[in-house]
Amino acid sequence: MLNLDIKRHLFLCCYDISDDDRRKRIRAIVKSFAIGGQYSCYECFLSRSEYQMLLRLLNAYSENGDSVVLQPVLSNKSIQCLGIAEAPVNIGFNYIG
């Protein structure tokens, strides 16, 4: 029987890349995993395999001098949102294909 209950965790992926072409490439990669975010910081609910895939892709396209951070968000703490920000919601499934 196929088990579709894949545990996913919330991460923030932030980057600071000076080269326009590399920044566009990194943004496209991160946004393909993201559920929301803005500018150079995105929220991503990732399974273990998605996390590993995103790390491989980021590592392949980033260079010395680039700054990329993939930070887990502790799930036992409530997320504080200010202004028009909305707390990220795990939709339970991302198709990457």
Rank of each mutant, 00 (worst) to 15 (best):
S62M: 12
C44I: 06
I26E: 00
D5K: 15
F45D: 05
Y15A: 06
I35M: 07
I29R: 04
K7T: 14
Q80N: 08
V69G: 00
I96Y: 14
D20V: 05
Y42K: 02
G97Q: 12
C13P: 12
I29P: 02
K7D: 08
K24P: 00
Q52F: 08
G83H: 09
Q71L: 13
V89Q: 10
Y61S: 01
C14F: 01
D16W: 05
F93P: 00
L46Q: 10
S49Y: 03
K31R: 15
N59S: 14
S78P: 10
D16M: 10
I96C: 09
K77V: 11
F33N: 03
Y95T: 13
S18V: 09
L57R: 15
R27E: 09
Y61P: 00
Y39A: 06
I84P: 00
I84D: 11
S78F: 07
Q38H: 04
A28C: 04
N59T: 14
I91M: 10
K7I: 12
Q80E: 06
S49W: 03
S67G: 05
S62G: 08
I91E: 14
Y42Q: 05
Q52C: 08
Y61G: 00
M1G: 15
I29V: 13
K24M: 08
S49A: 12
R23S: 12
D19Y: 01
C14V: 02
I26L: 09
V73F: 06
N94A: 14
I29A: 04
V73R: 07
I96G: 11
F45K: 03
C44N: 10
S18W: 01
G37I: 01
S75P: 09
Q52V: 02
D5T: 14
D5G: 04
K7S: 13
N94H: 15
G36D: 07
I96D: 13
G37V: 02
N64Y: 07
I96F: 15
C13R: 06
Y51E: 05
F33P: 05
F93C: 13
V30C: 06
C13D: 05
L74Y: 07
R22F: 03
C81K: 11
G65V: 07
G36P: 02
H9A: 09
D20T: 11
F45M: 07
C81A: 12
I17R: 03
K7A: 13
N76I: 07
N3S: 14
Y39I: 05
D16N: 12
S47M: 11
I79E: 02
F33C: 07
I96R: 15
G37D: 02
